[in-house]
Design a protein around this nucleic acid. Structure first.
Lengths: 194, 194
DNA sequence: GCAAAACCATACGCACAAGTATGGAGGGCC
DNA sequence: GGCCCTCCATACTTGTGCGTATGGTTTTGC
């Protein structure tokens, strides 16, 4: 008789990895504040007695989850884009790539929202530096002088994170797929020289 | 003898307005979470017994402070910019104006950080709509067709809020005044057609 | 100069989430 | 088949920040 009425799959035992993935999930949905141990325990079908066996503290889970995300998604994007030779094509790929892979960007948006948190602050800073450096170099290779490349890179990056923020605000007129594509094309046309 | 060792001016009595201004101050500095009644009371040199005479709840203070800010600063900017006839000049004025008046934008950045809060969510939504509408119309008047105007407006607005967010991240290489001016010029040149 | 109102201090209660203490169930190993 | 190690439940404690109760002090109206 149906005893599997939990929110997630009620596996028999859990590992630290399970907690980290669940944490990333709620992090993408409800932000940093939503990753609470008792709440998470409920969705996993256990109590917090389980949690404190795998992790010493909530902060430890948060750090582990963020680290996992940073390795799996962020490094992935960077390394893949870096391989493209032509700088303009590299920029286009970056813009397009950033416009897909929803889960990863939801996490990033959640981290941006909590950039004052002592644990995520260094992460945001690290990622910002890296993405800005990537963009700056691409623009420099595309013919921009040093100053202009830095400025254009900053513009592109802020447009990205601002876009994430705007889409966070529920109640804003949600863009459908085609208008979204059109917007990305417009951004590319505006920020990448012919 | 010397009993004035409080953090702020220890006026004799306080009014609701004093609390609102103090709230706006800490809101700009430490975000929504920083506007706590006992903390505020300390900086004002009183206890929370005072606070709950002026306001029924913390939420009420938050709402009052945000409303005050929205009226005093936000409406001010909009109405002043709207008076400029030439759309390109209007856009330039908007960009320049937004690059000064630090306090007001710190508050806005703080509100953006907490856009999930039920009290600030409608504010952010309202302001976003209005600024987007303002930008869209300016671009439309500048010769953009409807679709392009909407896209360019969105790009400009997201670049703005993303910029605020990037500057929030302490530890980022702080721009000095001249580089900041140069950046704004670059943005204007990029986002406003000649 | 005196009541009433405005303003504030002190001392509580309370909710919520993190962290702790402790014991118990179940599987692997010999 | 007894033992230990892993994983988890239950029942606490604790800290923090909001809100309340109540009484005291200063100001204002008259």
């Amino acid at each position: 008789m149906g005893e599997a009425h939990e929110k997630s799959e009620p596996r028999g035992r859990l590992s630290a990895t399970d907690w980290e993935q669940a944490a990333l999930h709620v992090l993408a949905e409800g932000g940093v504040a939503a990753v609470a141990v008792e709440s998470l325990a409920r969705t996993l079908g256990v109590t917090k007695g389980s949690f404190y066996w795998h992790f010493p503290t909530r902060e430890a889970l948060l750090k582990a989850a963020i680290d996992r995300w940073e390795q799996r998604d962020e490094d992935e994007v960077i390394s893949r884009v870096e391989r493209i030779a032509d700088p303009r094509e590299r920029l286009r790929e970056l813009f397009h790539r950033v416009s897909r892979e929803v889960q990863s960007h939801l996490v990033y948006a959640a981290l941006l929202q909590a950039s004052d948190h002592p644990l995520v602050q260094p992460v945001i800073e690290r990622i910002s530096r890296r993405r800005l450096a990537l963009l700056t170099q691409a623009y420099a290779e595309a013919g921009f002088d040093t100053r202009a490349a830095a400025h254009r890179a900053r513009l592109a990056y802020t447009a990205y994170s601002g876009f994430l923020q705007l889409n966070q605000s529920h109640g804003m007129p949600r863009m459908d797929q085609e208008e979204y594509e059109a917007y990305v094309d417009h951004v590319i046309a505006t920020l990448i020289p012919a």
